[in-house]
C-alpha cells in the first residue's frame, strides 16, 4: 500500500511549519527527505507515521486516511524509527527486538511460531544473531542502531520510515546502516523513507528525493535530475559545485562559502 499526503498543513499551536504538502511516496523505492535544520522534514515524516496530528489535510495509506484506521493495523504495514530512541539499557538485544512483534500479539499470544521465525530473521538480516543476548548498553553506536532497525523489521511491514538513522554515528556505521537499508529495499522490495542530513549520502542512496524549503516542497525527483547548484543554494543556503561521484555516478556537491578564503 502506498503512502501519500494530500493538502497537509502541519504545525505546533499557531506556528505553521509546513503548508499544503502533497507528496506521493513511490512504492518499492528509497525516498530521502532533505532540507536545512528546522525546515519540517522530521515533522512531515512523523505525521506520515501518525505520531503527530496535522493541522489540516490527510495522510493516506493505500486509499484510507491513517487517522481513521486502527493504529495496530497500520503498525503491520508501516514502521517508524524515531530519532535516537531510548530504552532501558539493561534490556538484551533479543528482548528489545521481540517487542517489534507487538502489533501481532495479544496478552495470551505472546510468542507464536511466527513471532519466533520473524525475530530470528530480523536478527540474521541485521547481523545480530551472535550477540542477541548482549545487553544494549554494551553495544557500539552502529550496533544499537541496527537493533532498532531489526525491531522495525520484526514489525514485518512493507514500508519503513526512519528519522535521521545515521545521526551521531561514525562514518563507517553511517555507511553500514544505509547499506543495510539499501539491501532491504533491493532484496525485499521494501519502501523506505529516510530523513537525512548529509546531501551527498542522500544523493547516493535515494531513488527519489524530496527537498523541503520554507514550509513547502521545493523540488522532488531523482537526485540526478533535481540536484543542482541552485537547489543547494536555495535549500541549504550554501554555494556549491556539483560533480559526478566517480564511484556511484550520482551527483556530489562540494560546498563552500567563499572561494577566496582558500586560494
Amino acid at each position: 500500500m502506498s503512502l501519500s499526503s494530500s493538502n497537509l498543513t502541519l504545525g505546533y499551536g499557531d506556528h505553521i511549519v509546513l503548508e499544503d504538502i502533497n507528496v506521493m511516496i513511490p512504492k518499492n523505492k528509497i525516498t530521502i527527505l532533505v532540507g536545512s535544520n528546522g525546515c519540517g522534514k522530521s515533522t512531515l515524516l512523523k505525521t506520515m507515521a501518525r505520531l503527530l496530528k496535522p493541522v489540516s489535510g490527510k495522510v493516506f495509506l493505500g486509499d484510507v486516511s491513517i487517522f481513521e484506521k486502527s493504529s495496530k493495523e497500520i503498525a503491520k504495514e508501516l514502521a517508524i524509527l524515531t530519532q535516537t530512541p531510548m530504552a532501558p539499557s539493561d534490556l538484551t538485544v533479543f528482548n528489545l527486538i521481540k517487542q517489534g512483534r507487538y502489533p501481532y500479539q495479544s496478552w495470551f499470544s505472546q510468542w507464536s511460531k511466527e513471532d519466533e521465525k520473524i525475530v530470528n530473521y530480523a536478527l540474521e538480516k541485521t547481523g545480530l544473531t551472535q550477540i542477541q543476548h548482549k545487553k544494549i548498553s554494551d553495544l557500539s553506536g552502529g550496533q544499537k542502531q541496527r537493533v532498532w532497525i531489526a525491531m522495525t523489521l520484526a514489525q514485518q511491514t512493507d514500508t519503513i520510515l526512519l528519522d535521521e538513522p545515521t545521526n551521531h554515528l561514525d562514518i563507517k556505521y553511517k555507511i553500514e546502516v544505509l547499506d543495510l537499508l539499501k539491501n532491504l529495499n533491493q532484496h525485499e522490495q521494501r519502501t523506505i523513507v529516510i530523513v537525512l542530513h548529509d546531501i551527498n549520502l542522500a544523493c547516493r542512496y535515494a531513488d527519489h528525493m524530496i527537498a523541503i524549503k520554507d514550509g513547502t516542497v521545493y523540488g522532488e525527483g531523482e537526485p540526478k535530475k533535481i540536484v543542482t547548484e541552485k537547489l543547494i543554494e536555495d535549500v541549504f543556503g550554501i554555494n556549491s559545485k556539483i560533480i559526478e561521484c566517480p564511484l556511484f555516478k550520482t551527483p556530489m556537491c562540494i560546498t563552500y562559502q567563499n572561494l577566496d578564503m582558500i586560494s
Binding site: K72, L81, M86, Y102
Partner: peptide, 19 residues
Amino acid sequence: TRELNIQNLDDGISIGLGS
C-alpha cells in the same frame, strides 16, 4: 505486562508499534 514493556520505550516508538 506487554503494555508496560511498550510504555518503557519512547512514546514515538510505542505509537509506531500500534499501542
